[in-house]
Write a protein that binds this DNA or RNA. Structure first.
Lengths: 212, 212
DNA sequence: AATAATAAATTAAACGTTTGTTTAAAACAA
DNA sequence: TTGTTTTAAACAAACGTTTAATTTATTATT
């Protein structure tokens, strides 16, 4: 049985993540969270201070490790530019689809939040990651492997595609005839589809042989 | 001076649209809306019945006309498959960026809503539109102009890219050095960029000459 | 055209809930 | 005994909605 402080904190964070993703930050009451986590209402203020600070804690709890992986990838000289793109696709598809609830909160509910602090935090993380990806594409162009493209919008297409598939699950459940409400099954079917689509599209889009 | 019933209804709808997009459905109170629209609080219940029915009215107010245009486009025999794709890109980029507030509500706040009725309504609209686009791509494939691609995910990439650019305005303001908070300027700069990026990418992605 | 009768629009105030947060006492651990 | 964790109860504020009274607009009658 989990009885120590850390476990209870994580219990609350998990409950909050699920409910924020399903019903939004404003659509979720602290009583909902307490009920879902099976803790007393007052424990949330006790541990996190407030509902908003709980969200900040959740972001800190889930964020962070992507940056390091990206830097490593962009520096790696043993990989060809196209290999790097493939790795990039694998990385983001896996990361986002396996953390779809958190990603849903970040993409759909954070922009609406009042707190400028939280929004600025996320913006700078995104810009940092974009810079790393930019390096990869610029390197491919310098090596005459990639053609001239709008780098920022190319990255927007990758992120946008994944986000689209993640945040419109109900739609793609119907389209691809996947049994409803089984996340694991959805991921098992969609992750390979999504990876191969993005790789195929980026291959054609970036290949210097397709220069107009 | 506008004094009749219809104008006041539209006033309220506009105010609601703005606030729902900025702060979300649950983050917006009917008092906020009344204040923004400069009407008495009770007028919202009087005209629309409830806050949720106000949202339904907003959706009905803004939805609809896309379907017809898409059907026409897919039937048009005077256009080549690639011309149709270009028209499609123009249509969606213009439509979404010029109605970004409403689009923001649809993509980020509707999926969170409790009301299954509203969600089903939007899902069936999306599936209907997807079917029309599917026809266009299938036709291009039959004519040996397009190669084999995942059609659903290709459409997801188009929608996802546009949504990404629309719903992360703050980010792209910084990235492209656009003066803050001027929607008109943002659209003027982004619409052509977005259109040419999508056309270029889809050209490479769909072209049968790029078959692996 | 003026008046009376009816309907529609608008208002301020109040309704009962639910909200996030705090309190002060109790239970538990060190 | 000390300090930490947990609890039920209470708090004021904000929420969506309704009420009942009043003003404005429309229609019918003289």
């Amino acid at each position: 049985m989990e009885k120590n402080t850390t476990d209870k904190r994580i219990h609350i964070l998990d409950a909050a993540e699920q409910l924020f993703a399903e019903k939004g930050f404003d659509g979720t009451s602290v009583r909902d969270i307490a009920g879902q986590a099976n803790v007393n209402l007052a424990m949330i203020s006790y541990y996190f201070g407030s509902k908003e600070k709980l969200l900040v804690s959740l972001i800190e709890h889930r964020s962070g490790y992507t940056r390091g992986i990206l830097e490593e990838l962009s520096k790696d000289e043993s990989l060809s530019p196209f290999d790097k793109i493939d790795r990039l696709v694998d990385l983001y598809v896996d990361k986002i689809l396996n953390n779809s609830r958190f990603h849903c909160i970040v993409t759909t509910h954070l922009p609406t939040m009042q707190s400028e602090e939280i929004k600025d935090m996320m913006t700078s993380i995104k810009i940092g990651n974009l810079e790393q990806i930019k390096k990869i594409i610029l390197d491919g162009q310098k090596k005459k492997v990639f053609r001239k493209v709008d780098i920022e919008l190319t990255v927007a297409s990758v992120m946008g595609t994944i986000t689209q598939v993640t945040s419109s699950k109900a739609l793609y459940h119907k389209i691809f005839n996947i049994e409803k409400n089984i996340d694991e099954l959805y991921n098992k079917k969609m992750i390979p589809k999504l990876k191969s689509h993005l790789k195929q599209m980026l291959k054609a889009h970036l290949d210097i042989k397709n220069q107009e």
